[in-house]
């Protein structure tokens, strides 16, 4: 039904959570991005979150803003995301979710985007600025094409809104660990644990936690109560400094943290 859900369930069954690794498409170039994504999967990421660079990324901190700006300045086009997915899925067996602000999809055409995503081998979308209330078209199209749909849940969300996020998501629900934007942090907010518990209470079966997760220790503590941990800015910084080889080794280190889920 959902490859992402299957991957999470399989991991859970063998006593671990999943590592979801984020990298921006086309950073630093399309070719090097493909190498980095392959390295990310081979290093140990169970699911890839591939971000579409956008001119006005309000949910992102400086690290990701800089990287996506670089990609845009070197000529990244939205359609490049599909060739990247094709290239990566030809080499590694990993589900790829596309993370995108909503306007690029609106301009591409929601249905056309979804069809091209299916053709490329992508499995769904994570939508940081599209709430279920505004998502009627995307829900219809993704149902028809059996694509995953990851909505966000925040510590500030009411139970009614959490229920809506759970009911409308497929694959997993993205629990935002803290009130804030993406970026590495020293300490993880205890709010994440409460949020995951509240999501479970309204029926969530698969929940991954993101924003601010930047060490194997964080991954370990998150996988203690959630089904997976989402890491972004740390991977972007590593790619910037140490290239795909660095991404491979940091992914291996991070994935050592996923094994604390009690089956």
């Amino acid at each position: 039904m959902s490859r992402v859900t299957d991957v999470i369930r399989a991991a859970n069954a063998s006593g671990r959570g999943v590592l979801v690794g984020y990298l921006p498409a086309g950073f630093p170039t399309v070719d090097e991005c493909i190498e980095a994504l392959v390295a990310l999967a081979e290093g140990g990421a169970d699911i890839i979150e591939l971000g579409i660079p956008y001119s006005d990324p309000v949910m992102d901190g400086l690290v990701i803003q800089r990287a996506t700006n670089t990609a845009l300045e070197s000529g990244f086009r939205v359609r490049d995301v599909f060739s990247i997915i094709s290239a990566v899925t030809a080499r590694v067996d990993v589900p790829i979710l596309v993370m995108t602000y909503w306007n690029p999809v609106v301009q591409y055409g929601v249905e056309r985007f979804a069809r091209d995503l299916v053709d490329a081998g992508g499995v769904g979308l994570i939508t940081p600025d599209l709430i279920p209330d505004e998502a009627a078209e995307w829900i219809r199209v993704s149902d028809a094409l059996k694509l995953d749909r990851v909505f966000l849940a925040a510590p500030s969300s009411t139970d009614t809104r959490l229920r809506s996020a759970v009911e409308n998501s497929r694959g997993f629900v993205y629990a935002v660990s803290t009130m804030g934007i993406t970026g590495t942090r020293e300490d993880l907010d205890s709010a994440a644990r409460d949020l995951v518990a509240r999501l479970r209470a309204v029926g969530a079966e698969t929940v991954c936690v993101g924003v601010g997760i930047s060490s194997a220790e964080h991954v370990r503590s998150v996988c203690d109560y959630a089904d997976g941990a989402i890491v972004g800015s740390l991977l972007v910084t590593t790619l910037e400094n140490d290239g795909p080889a660095g991404v491979r080794s940091i992914a291996a280190e991070l994935s050592s943290g996923v094994s604390s889920v009690t089956p």
């Binding site: 505004e134 925040a154 500030s156 996020a165 935002v176």
Partner: peptide, 12 residues
């Protein structure tokens, strides 16, 4: 119109 913002802002 509408509200195309991160979920974190909806409560506010």
């Amino acid at each position: 119109g509408g509200r195309f913002v991160p979920e974190s802002l909806i409560k506010a």
